[in-house]
């Protein structure tokens, strides 16, 4: 309960001037992250700069060879990294496009239905991720649900084989896996949106599109931003989906990284991961600049 009491402290009238007491709330998580994340990552960083004969040995000579390799190796790591980012962007955009109206639908339902619908959105998560991805092979495959249905209704006589084992199926499954996050995040911001503003806009003669773009969307941007983080970043680390439904064209950066780890190349694997993390952080910084959340909420 210590964390909760830290939360409470901020509204105490005895708030100190120099360091807001509220900042103590950061302490537990920051400590956990430093001890259980930063320190281990420093070890990994050391490995990525060490050339060691022995597995996981810290003795060896300093080298940047692993990083050089990320940028050379026929350019495959960079190319696949860029490809991974592009696919993640497309999947995230698709999640937002499909998920926003869905969240709107839930936020518009009556109170008692909202909780039921939200429960139903989260439910699929609790079934094994692996098994759910597998299930898609039985939906999109040559004798899958879709092809069988098309054949049954006489639409096609040959199975549509482009449904599975390519970038398309990969993105479909990504959207399937991550859309609940989008829906939850956007729902949360829709739900606390100030609705009187919407009515005011309509009263003043704004069209529904104008109302949405000027009133609703800006108010839900934090939800949109949160869902981008929830969807975009985890997709960059996806390993299973490309393996199971991506076929030969859907290879992503984590597949290459995992292959290296299974060859006991921890140093090189770490180098790939750090290059990737740098890319992602730069993207996130850019995103933060363009969607300056703080300014939106100062008022």
């Amino acid at each position: 309960m210590r964390a909760a009491s830290n939360v409470a402290v901020h509204i105490s009238p005895r708030v100190g001037r120099a360091i807001p007491r509220l900042l103590w709330g950061l302490l537990p998580l920051a400590t956990i992250d430093v001890v259980l994340f930063v320190i281990p990552m420093v070890f990994m960083a050391l490995f990525s700069f060490r050339f060691s004969e022995e597995l996981l040995g810290l003795v060896g000579r300093w080298t940047v060879a692993h990083y050089v390799k990320v940028f050379t190796s026929e350019g495959i790591y960079l190319r696949i990294l860029v490809k991974t980012i592009v696919i993640a962007v497309v999947a995230t955009a698709a999640c937002l496009l499909v998920g926003y109206p869905f969240a709107y639908f839930i936020a518009n339902a009556s109170r008692r239905w909202q909780s039921v619908l939200l429960t139903l959105v989260i439910m699929p998560f609790w079934t094994s991720y692996l098994l759910r991805v597998y299930a898609w092979t039985a939906i999109l495959g040559d004798r899958g649900l879709i092809n069988e249905a098309l054949r049954f209704f006489g639409v096609t006589d040959q199975p549509l084989s482009f449904l599975l084992f390519n970038v398309f199926s990969e993105i479909v499954v990504f959207v399937y896996l991550y859309i609940p996050y989008t829906v939850l995040a956007i729902y949360a911001s829709l739900e606390k949106m100030d609705r009187s503003l919407v009515l005011a806009a309509m009263d003043l003669g704004a069209t529904p599109v104008q109302t949405f773009l000027r009133i609703v969307l800006p108010q839900t941007l934090p939800g949109v931003y949160a869902s981008i983080v929830f969807v975009f970043i985890p997709i960059l680390g996806e390993y299973v989906t490309p393996t199971l439904v991506g076929g030969m064209s859907g290879v992503l950066i984590t597949n290459l990284l995992v292959n290296q780890i299974h060859a006991l190349e921890f140093g090189f694997g770490a180098a790939i991961a750090f290059v990737m993390a740098t890319f992602v952080l730069m993207l996130l910084l850019g995103l933060r600049r363009s969607v300056d959340l703080e300014r939106l909420y100062v008022a």
Partner: peptide, 9 residues
Amino acid sequence: IDAFNEAIA
């Protein structure tokens, strides 16, 4: 592994 990665990527 390097060769395998280069081939599949």
